[in-house]
């Protein structure tokens, strides 16, 4: 995030997504700056979730592009994107304890057990 504050951090350009005969998104463009608190409002079924899922990497636009920090996210899978999302159903892992849920993303080879428990 070395660029000036008025540069868009997330840049969405002419994004469209069609589900069967329903057009969920049609030529949506918007810019979000770093540090900005951005709200997306609208009635149910207007495409908020679709857009959010596209930024997170679970849906792919039929046309248009999504850039985060000036990098095109087209070929980047969800687990390599610098995004985090809270799911409608919360998606809390039922087989793990509270601490294991909180520390889930940390538990990879580059984090030791002590470090995880300290950060949790």
């Amino acid at each position: 995030m070395s660029q000036p504050i008025d540069q868009p951090f997330i840049k969405i350009q002419d994004v469209s997504r069609q589900f069967g005969t329903v057009a969920a998104l049609k030529d949506v463009s918007l810019n979000i700056r770093a540090g900005e608190f951005f709200s997306l409002l609208g009635p149910s079924g207007c495409g908020k979730t679709t857009l959010l899922r596209m930024i997170a990497g679970f849906e792919h636009p039929d046309s248009g592009s999504i850039c985060i920090d000036s990098i095109d996210m087209a070929g980047v899978p969800a687990n390599r994107r610098p995004t985090n999302m809270v799911f409608q159903s919360y998606a809390i892992f039922p087989h793990l304890s509270v601490a294991e849920n909180v520390g889930y993303g940390l538990k990879r080879s580059d984090h030791s057990k002590q470090e995880i428990s300290a950060r949790v």
């Binding site: 687990n79 999302m85 799911f87 409608q88 993303g105």
Partner: peptide
Amino acid sequence: DNSLEEASLDLGESGTATFFRV
């Protein structure tokens, strides 16, 4: 719930690791 799998990917875990951990 499918979003459990997506949540794991969202937290940066790979597909294979998600399969074994979730």
